[in-house]
Simulated scan of single mutants.
Amino acid sequence: MYRSPSYISGDLAEWLEDRKMDHVRGAPNHPQTQGKIERWHQTLKNRILLENYYLPGHLENQIDAFVKHYNHQRYHESLGNVTPTDVYFGRDTAIKERRKRIKKQTIQKRRLNHQRQAA
């Protein structure tokens, strides 16, 4: 059945409203914003093209696995080397502070070991 764009956009608006989300469009003539999503699509494409998929379900499963990995396991340099999930749930600050403490303790231990070896 053919559905006109007005019905599809209405469905999208309802879906977004149910999830308390806003539909945000990229600014025209602002390639940096567009580049972010294009980079994400390139990363997805490069990952997906590594294998052959003989059934649509296999491809859908691989895309789902990629999205889960990207959001829950893959550290993002632009987010301070935490996952998007960590940022979304507000865990990023605690993670970064814990890393700072570990780094400080590691440096102190290395200095102490170096001093012991030099003596």
Rank of each mutant, 00 (worst) to 15 (best):
P5F: 05
P31L: 07
R99W: 07
A27R: 14
E60T: 07
P5D: 07
Q34F: 00
Q34A: 13
D92Q: 15
E17C: 10
P5W: 02
H72G: 07
Q34E: 06
G10P: 11
R25Y: 12
V87F: 00
H41L: 09
Y53M: 00
R91Y: 06
G90A: 04
Q105E: 15
R110G: 01
A13Y: 09
L59K: 10
T85E: 15
V24N: 02
L55T: 08
N71R: 01
S78Y: 00
Q105S: 09
H69E: 05
D86N: 09
G10I: 01
G35P: 03
Q105N: 10
P84R: 06
G35I: 01
Q115V: 03
V87K: 00
T85H: 07
H41P: 01
T85P: 01
A13W: 11
H58N: 10
T85F: 01
N71C: 01
S78D: 04
H58D: 13
V87E: 01
A119E: 08
W15M: 05
D22S: 13
N52E: 11
H76E: 06
N46W: 13
M1Y: 11
H30D: 13
N52T: 09
L44E: 04
I48R: 09
E60G: 03
P56H: 06
L55N: 02
Y2M: 07
E17V: 05
T83L: 12
T83W: 09
L16Y: 08
Q108V: 08
L44Q: 04
R111M: 12
T106W: 05
K45S: 13
